[in-house]
């Protein structure tokens, strides 16, 4: 037998519906048992168990199966189903008698996991999340509660569709998932989403400034503008990203300073 390095062409393969539903449901809790040492290892194993139950072998086979998936694993949860689909395909091929070396599963899991983690971080955490957050803040500034909940619901449904479809795609491509990673549309998509996020950030800033200047609040407007300018400029000047919780305390300190300045000036 010859070890496979590319996905052997055996016609279009699809996951069975019942197995796909089980894999999908479990993949949604991939991070439930997240730990610092091996991250999503238990989540991955639990997601793969429906396949193991369907192909129940002797005790030794079950133990080997668990060992294969109990090592370090970490990827982006929204794109994890590409990897899970691909791993199920490798298991299917092995069960069908193809020569899939044991080490290949680990190599596939680790390298694909890392690649999708990097793509997912850029697309979801640094791209989509700031964009969606700024969109809902913009709607919040105009007091549009139903609309902002709808935006979140739209994202929720969208990411579930991506996860559902990527399970099939990962299974269909198997080892050829590597080709998918080279698709230029990933990076074009990331750039577009980041740009959208930047524009929405600007729009939120602009709306906020317009509302502050138009608020008619009985506060010293010069000081308020000074505070807003310091607020906008401080993180950029510090060149550090502080957790929001720390920024609340920084803002409180700044507000106290400004208030004392008002008191001292007697205005």
């Amino acid at each position: 037998m010859r070890a496979v390095t590319r996905q052997p062409d055996r016609g279009v393969r699809k996951l069975g519906f019942a197995l796909k539903v089980r894999l999908f449901m479990r993949s949604l809790s991939l991070q439930a048992s997240w730990n610092h040492e091996r991250m999503q290892n238990l989540g991955l194993l639990v997601a793969m168990l429906p396949w193991a139950r369907r192909h129940r072998g002797d005790l030794n086979r079950d133990r080997t199966f668990c060992r294969r998936y109990y090592e370090y694993f970490n990827t982006n949860p929204y794109l994890a189903n590409f990897v899970i689909g691909g791993l199920v395909r490798l298991e299917d091929d092995r069960a069908a008698g193809l020569d899939v070396p044991l080490g290949m599963t680990a190599t596939f899991r680790d390298s694909l996991g890392r690649a999708f983690a990097s793509l997912g971080d850029q697309l979801f955490w640094l791209g989509l999340r700031p964009a969606v957050v700024m969109a809902i803040c913009l709607l919040g500034l105009f007091w549009q509660m139903a609309a902002l909940i709808s935006v979140i619901a739209l994202f929720a449904v969208g990411q579930l569709v991506v996860r559902w479809r990527s399970l099939d795609q990962g299974y269909r491509l198997g080892l050829d998932l590597v080709d998918l990673l080279q698709d230029k549309r990933w990076h074009r998509g990331i750039a577009a989403v980041e740009r959208t996020g930047m524009i929405l950030t600007g729009m939120t800033a602009g709306t906020y400034l317009a509302l502050v200047t138009d608020s008619g609040l009985p506060v010293n407007h010069n000081l308020l503008w000074f505070g807003v300018a310091v607020g906008l400029g401080l993180p950029v000047a510090l060149r550090r990203r502080l957790p929001g919780e720390v920024l609340i305390l920084v803002a409180l300190g700044l507000a106290l300073l400004l208030t004392f300045a008002v008191l001292l000036s007697g205005s």
């Binding site: 700031p130 906020y208 502050v212 550090r240």
Partner: peptide, 19 residues
Amino acid sequence: AMLPLLLPGLGIGNLIERY
């Protein structure tokens, strides 16, 4: 009273630093 008016600026500034 000044705090909720300062927070958005800090948050947006933090995000711009992220980009």
